[in-house]
Nucleic acid binder design. Structure first.
Length: 654
RNA sequence: GCGCCCGUAGCUCAGGUGGAUAGAGCGGCGGUUUCCUAAACCGCAGGCCGCAGGUUCGAAUCCUGCCGGGCGCACCA
C-alpha cells in the first residue's frame, strides 16, 4: 500500500509498555545530582560522554575542568570531590580521576550482565519513549507526479522515511506527508503534450508510460536550445562578440576538425556548417519559446478552472499516482497523507489576502511579496501575472498543518539548494503567527557520479529511480550468485532484492546528510566496511547459529537466561548492545541517520570479533553456551531493529 | 558582489555542547580456515585535520581573515 490516502485517525503511536535503559542518560542523571555547588547541573551532566578510549573506562565525565575554570578552583581537587559524592550504584564504583580532571567510569560487569538479562524479554530492547512526546510532521519525497521519479528523489525519500521511523520509535507522533508536485508547470507540459503530440494507441496500451514520454518530449523541446548552445560552446560566445573568424575556428576545433585560420582551405566548408548550426539554434529557440509559452498557458488554464484541463487532470492523476506507487512499494516507503499542491490551491487566494491584511505582504514590481530581514530577494506570494507559486502553497500548507495537527515540529527533507527558500518561509510563517512549531529544513547534498559531477547516465541523462533500483538488485544478484550457489533460485532473488535495496539506502543514510556524496556501486555492495550488506551478513550468521543448533530464539525472548561477560569480546559486544537507546536517541535529536548506521556498524563489528573468539554451540559449558546464545540473539534483534529504522530488511541466509 | 554548505590518510568518508595519543572502510603490505557462513577475522604502514592568526588549562570542533571547491541569489519547484 502506498498509503497515499490513509485517514488521519489511523496514524499510530507506539505502544508504551517497555523497560527502559539509556546508560548515558542514567549516568548524566547521577552526575547532575553530584554537580559542584554553584555549577549548572545540566551543563555539568552534559559533559558526561562515552569514553574516547577503552583504557579510560566506558564513560567519562569531563565537566570538572570547565567548572574549575569558572570558579578559579583546582580541577583535580574538584574532580576528587565529585568522585566522592557521586553515587553510581549499582552501575559502577567510584570513578577514577585522571589527567587534568577527567572522571572515568567503568561499568561493573555484573551490572551490565543484569541489564542484558532484562533486555532479553524486553520487546523494545530498552529503548525509552520520549518524556514529552511530540507531534512531528515530516515532509519528504515530494516528487512531481508528471514525471518518473529519478535519482534526485532518493535522498529525500530514504532520509525522510528513516527519520520518520526513528522518531516514531522514540515515541513521537509522526505524520509522514508526501507533498506531491501535482499542480505545477510540469502538468502544463503534459497537457500541452497530450493536446499536440499524443499517440492514442500508445496511451491506450500503457497510459503511465505514454504520459511520461509525452512529458519528456515536451521537456526536450524546451531544453533543446540549451543543449545546442552547450554543443556550440565558446564558438557561440565569440560569434556574439562579432569575432566571426575566431568563432569558426573555435567551432572547427570543438567539432574535432581543427583548421589553421581563415586562409585554411576548409574554412568556407566549416563556416557553412557553423552557420547551419546557428540557424538550427535560432529555430530551436523559437520553437522552445513557443512550446514553453503554450505549456505555461495550459497550466494557467488548469489553475483557472478550465473544464477540459481539469477533466484531463482528473483523468491522468490516477495513472501518475499508480506509477509512483510502484516505486514506493518496492522501497517499502509509506505515507500517512499525501496532500499535494492541488490540495492547497483553493486556499491560496485567502493566504495572500490574509498576509496583506496583516500588513506583511506588499506590492513590488507588480508582484505581491513579503520581505525578510537580511535577505535581498523577497518572498513572492503572488506573481505579477496573478498566479501563486510554491511560496504561497508552502504557507498554506503550514497553516493547514497547524490547524489540523498542531504539530510541535515540522521537518522538510529537501535538498540544500532550497535553503534560502526555507529560511524565508520559516521567517514569514513565524511573523504570520505560526510560531509554535519548530521548523527544520533537513537539508542534504547532491549525489555525484565518479566524475564528481551530479550523477547521470553515460548519455548524460538523469538516472531514473526504477532503473537505479533494478541495477542495485541486479548487482546484488550477481554477488549472491557468486557467494551462495547453494540457495535456490527463488531465495537468491529474494536475497538480492533485500540486499540491493539495503545497499542503496544504507549508502545514502550512512553519509553525513549535508555533504554531497559520490555514488559508487562497488563500495555500497561491498561485504566489508560500513555497508548494509556487512550488517545483514552479521545478522544472517547469527541466524545460522540458531539453525545449526536447532534452537528457537523465542526461549530467550520469553524467559531469558543468565548472561556472563567473561571474555573481552563478550563484554564489548554486551556494552555495545546496551548503547542502542543512546544511538537511536541521538540520531533522532540530531536528525542524522548516519549516527545510527555508525552504531550498527560498530555493533556488527563487535559481533564479528565475538564470533571469531567465542565459540557458541561448542562453548566449554552449557551455561556459557546459553549466555552466548542470548548475547547473539540480542545482537540479532538490535541489528534487525536498527536496520528496520533505516527502512532496511534482513535475510535469514545469504 | 551577497548568502548557505564543504575542505580530515593515496581514495571514499566518520568525528554530540571544545577534552586525553584524530577514527573507519577501500587500496597497499603481512598473517588466520580439521572449528557456529572466509561475503569473515587479526596485525602493520599511511595525517601540518586547506592556510594564517585569535579565544584558553585544552581547538579538527568556537571567532576573524585568506585560499580552494559546490550551491543559491524576483515571479520554476
Amino acid at each position: 500500500m502506498l498509503g497515499l490516502l490513509i485517514p488521519r485517525t489511523q496514524i499510530k503511536t507506539r505502544p508504551s509498555k517497555h523497560a527502559t535503559m539509556n546508560i548515558l542518560d542514567a549516568l548524566r542523571d547521577r552526575f547532575a545530582q553530584a554537580a559542584p555547588a554553584g555549577s549548572d547541573p545540566v551543563t555539568f551532566a552534559a559533559a558526561v560522554r562515552p569514553s574516547t578510549d577503552t583504557k579510560f573506562g566506558d564513560y567519562q565525565a569531563n565537566g570538572c575542568m570547565g567548572v574549575a575554570k569558572a570558579a578559579g578552583a583546582n580541577p583535580r581537587a574538584l574532580a576528587q570531590e565529585v568522585a566522592g559524592r557521586v553515587n553510581l550504584d549499582p552501575m559502577a564504583d567510584t570513578p577514577e580521576i585522571a589527567g587534568p580532571g577527567f572522571l572515568n567510569v567503568r561499568l561493573k560487569d555484573a551490572w551490565l550482565a543484569s541489564v542484558l538479562n532484562s533486555l532479553q524479554t524486553d520487546e523494545t530492547l530498552g529503548l525509552p519513549l520520549a518524556v514529552a512526546p511530540q507531534t512531528v510532521v515530516i515532509d519528504f519525497s515530494s516528487p512531481n507526479v508528471a514525471k518518473p521519479m529519478h535519482v534526485g528523489h532518493v535522498r529525500s525519500t530514504v532520509i525522510g522515511d528513516s527519520l520518520a521511523r526513528i522518531l516514531h520509535a522514540l515515541g513521537h507522533r509522526v505524520i509522514k506527508d508526501n507533498h506531491l508536485g501535482d499542480w505545477g508547470a510540469q502538468f502544463g507540459m503534459i497537457l500541452y503534450g497530450w493536446k499536440n503530440l499524443r499517440d492514442d494507441q500508445a496511451y491506450a496500451a500503457d497510459p503511465v508510460s505514454h504520459l511520461s514520454s509525452l512529458y519528456r518530449l515536451v521537456q526536450s523541446k524546451i531544453g533543446a536550445p540549451g543543449k545546442l548552445r552547450e554543443q556550440l560552446g565558446d564558438a557561440l560566445a565569440l560569434e556574439k562578440k562579432g569575432k566571426h573568424g575566431e568563432a569558426v575556428q573555435k567551432y572547427a576545433a570543438e567539432t574535432g576538425q581543427p583548421i589553421s585560420g581563415a586562409d585554411d582551405p576548409r574554412f568556407s566548408e566549416l563556416e557553412t556548417r557553423f552557420q547551419t548550426s546557428l540557424a538550427e539554434l535560432t529555430t530551436a529557440e523559437a520553437a522552445a519559446k513557443q512550446v514553453e509559452e503554450a505549456a505555461r498557458l495550459e497550466t494557467v488554464k488548469l489553475h483557472a478552472g478550465d473544464p477540459e484541463n481539469r477533466a484531463l487532470w482528473d483523468q491522468f492523476m490516477p495513472f501518475c499516482l499508480s506509477a509512483l506507487e510502484g516505486v514506493y512499494l518496492r522501497l517499502g516507503v509509506t505515507f500517512d497523507v499525501a496532500l499535494g499542491e492541488s490540495f492547497y490551491d483553493p486556499m491560496l487566494a485567502d493566504v495572500v489576502t490574509d498576509l496583506e491584511s496583516r500588513g506583511l505582504a506588499t506590492q513590488s514590481e507588480g508582484a505581491t511579496v513579503v520581505f525578510t530581514e537580511g535577505m535581498k530577494a523577497p518572498f513572492i506570494v503572488r506573481k505579477r501575472d496573478g498566479a501563486y507559486n510554491y511560496a504561497t502553497t508552502d504557507l498554506a500548507t503550514i497553516r493547514y498543518r497547524v490547524q489540523e495537527w498542531n504539530p510541535d515540529h515540522i521537518l522538510y527533507v529537501v535538498d540544500h539548494r532550497q535553503g534560502d527558500h526555507f529560511k524565508a518561509l520559516f521567517d514569514v510563517a513565524g511573523r504570520w503567527g505560526y510560531t509554535h512549531p519548530r521548523y527544520d529544513h533537513v537539508a542534504f547534498g547532491t549525489i555525484l557520479g565518479n566524475d564528481r559531477k551530479p550523477f547521470k547516465t553515460r548519455a548524460g541523462d538523469t538516472v531514473g529511480l526504477e532503473s537505479l533500483l533494478d541495477e542495485a538488485v541486479a548487482r546484488a544478484r550477481k554477488v549472491v550468485d557468486e557467494n551462495s550457489p547453494e540457495l535456490d533460485e527463488a531465495e537468491r532473488a529474494q536475497v538480492a532484492e533485500i540486499v540491493g535495496m539495503g545497499a542503496l539506502k544504507y549508502a545514502d543514510l550512512s553519509q553525513n546528510r549535508l555533504s554531497d556524496y559520490v555514488f559508487d556501486w562497488d563500495k555500497m555492495l561491498a561485504l566489508n566496511g560500513n555497508t548494509a550488506t556487512y550488517i545483514q551478513y552479521a545478522y544472517a550468521r547469527i541466524r545460522s547459529i540458531f539453525r545449526k543448533g536447532e534452537l528457537a530464539p523465542e526461549t530467550f525472548r520469553t524467559t531469558g537466561v543468565s548472561i556472563a561477560l567473561d571474555h573481552p569480546a563478550e563484554r564489548a559486544l554486551g556494552l555495545q548492545i546496551l548503547r542502542w537507546p543512546e544511538a537511536v536517541a541521538l540520531a533522532g535529536s540530531e536528525l542524522k541517520p548516519n549516527i545510527l548506521t555508525d552504531y550498527l556498524f560498530t555493533l556488527a563489528n563487535a559481533f564479528s570479533a565475538f564470533f571469531e573468539n567465542c565459540p557458541v554451540l561448542k562453548a566449554e559449558s552449557e551455561a556459557t553456551k546459553l549466555s552466548r546464545l542470548a548475547l547473539a540473539d540480542l545482537t540479532a534483534r538490535v541489528l534487525k531493529n536498527g536496520l528496520g529504522l533505516l527502512g532496511i530488511n534482513t535475510v535469514e541466509r545469504m
